[in-house]
Design a binder for these strands. Structure first.
Lengths: 336, 336
DNA sequence: TTGAAAGCGCTAACAT
DNA sequence: ATGTTAGCGCTTTCAA
């Protein structure tokens, strides 16, 4: 049925002008109760739903934002996406989803599409663009907010978790448990915050006067976490701080396969606190990202900007994570 | 800034009419090479990107589809969403995301929003709408395709996995391993295909001449899977078919907590084959849904319909799942 | 091969 | 309180 009722149909049926229909429906201007009723009735009878594309053309705003995510399949990102969508909805904004996929080229293409669709603003979550095409980001003709990742000195509205501090907390927790030889499963540079988290581990280890952590590189996923673990065991670490929960789950699996008990022989800490972290075996001690807050911050600041607020071009805002201690960490062998 | 170049700017700069610009850019009609070049140059210089909202108003199609999902955070759905988005993108369609959240009312509201946004079609994935508001679905003025769930006799384009058969395969696998007392972790009726899967378990058990399965109700998530497991153990089952992988993960956890070994004492089978299923401890034997195929089928049939194809109003198409045997299943005690 | 002009469905001056 | 009208940025007849 392309035969959807237009405002003109409603106007005709209720015997008023389209302007009146528009006003009644928006409630912007008072109307005589009788007219009001007639218009409302006509609209209902015709099952009239105003075309937001016509409205968008006129108002020059679509009330839509774009959401760019590298991989919606990653549990942390899908939680973030849910938060973003939900808050956007609260504010009357729709969300068009641009899932990154493998390459940065595709993300750029997606970006152009979003712009052609005239989204009012864009939320970018840990995209490849962030690092590889920072200059492109600055050229985007609509407000942008970066979540969970940073382009230094870009002046782009940014909110992240305090990654470095979070990783430090995780590591301090291990150290407090008596671990002296700490391993870190890192992630490639194209993963969000990989270097900050690595730094955080180093900070803690150095702060405690221990020797530098053993670092093995994963891929940010379970498989990489599993394969990185071997090197860590060989190096004799008793505590592992993983780049994220997925990597930690890989480590858990690898450890189990090798007959290494967790946390008796080796402790493992993750990062993110995805839903499943509470259900691994043993349940994963991890650094919880304030996912909902990140999403809310991002959308609400974007909405402010769309409302004309000029952002203080400040430095990235960073929200504090929180250590959630579960069963995958325990005292080092021979410690307290 | 809001000062984006319009087709008129391009026309002025290249000294032709807007009609010519439109034609050159769409390539629909041949133009003199020289004109062509001038137009292209102007467009490039001005960084012109046609407004798809103006185009949509004129053409009366937005080249956008709506995606309704109950919970994007559920790994199976996020995988499906990725598939859907990706195929839609292939066909030049954008995706606006409507994440269901808790209640059906919200989904209805989302639906209206999608319609106002004039999406050309809608993909509905296991939504609450499916069961509670079937009549509303039929009233949607754009083509709809249902994925992974069915509204019987609705004539709505539908693609699902062969849930019943899949559950039967899972159960047969257990039976073949010598299990005689089968348990099933079910899901509430508002979860997709919960009754079909339960039926499949029953089919297999009866087919083998065993007594009816013990059914304990979960909630479709990990927590529910874990709490349902107790009753199953008490009933003395040695093989558990879970509604889905999340429930199975819950079962794994509960079993572990009770000191029941998997698969030595009890075997567990999941459903979906989410990414993490391969990484549980032990790795989960499960029924793999053809997720990508579901997504592709849905989008491509929707696109066909948008192109004017009139669907054969047939019965739901169902795609075959496949049993993936991993470590969570083994011979029953005292069996072969 | 190109231009002029109408019109998609709304909203917002500007009148009355 | 309501109507008239212009116009948002495109595409597409219809003419030339």
């Amino acid at each position: 049925m392309s035969g959807r009722a237009t405002i003109e149909d409603v106007a005709a049926r209720s015997g008023v002008s389209t302007a009146t229909v528009s006003r009644v429906l928006s409630g912007s201007v008072p109307a005589r109760p009788e007219t009001r009723d007639r218009v409302l009735a006509a609209a209902r009878d015709l099952d009239y739903h105003p075309s937001s594309v016509a409205r968008a053309l006129k108002r020059r705003e679509t009330r839509t934002m774009g959401l760019v995510v590298t991989d919606i399949t990653n549990p942390f990102y899908s939680q973030l996406a849910r938060a973003v969508e939900s808050v956007a909805h609260e504010h009357g904004y729709g969300m068009v989803l641009a899932n990154g996929g493998d390459d940065a080229a595709r993300e750029l293409e997606h970006l152009d599409l979003l712009l052609e669709r005239r989204v009012d603003g864009i939320v970018i979550v840990s995209s490849r663009l962030t690092r590889r095409d920072a200059h492109r980001l600055r050229a985007i003709p609509v407000p942008v907010v970066l979540v969970n990742d940073t382009v230094t000195g870009s002046g782009i509205l940014t909110v992240t978790t305090a990654h470095r501090h979070g990783a430090r907390m995780a590591t301090d927790h291990l150290i407090l448990l008596g671990h002296r030889r700490i391993g870190h499963i890192g992630a490639p540079a194209d993963q969000a915050a990989s270097s900050q988290r690595r730094q955080g581990v180093r900070d803690a280890v150095r702060g405690a006067g221990l020797e530098d952590p053993v670092v093995a590189l994963g891929d940010g996923g379970v498989a990489g976490g599993a394969s990185a673990t071997g090197a860590l065991i060989d190096a004799g670490v008793t505590g592992i701080v993983a780049y994220n929960d997925l990597s930690a789950i890989g480590a858990l699996r690898a450890l189990h396969r090798e007959g290494v008990r967790v946390p008796d022989d080796v402790s493992v800490v993750g990062f993110d606190d995805i839903d499943l972290a509470a259900w691994t075996d043993p349940p994963l001690t991890t650094v919880r990202q304030p996912t909902d807050d990140l999403g809310r911050w991002a959308v609400e600041h974007l909405v402010d900007r769309l409302g004309g607020a000029t952002d203080p071009a400040g430095r990235p805002v960073s929200l504090e994570p929180r250590l959630v201690v579960r069963g995958s960490t325990g005292p080092a062998q021979g410690a307290v």
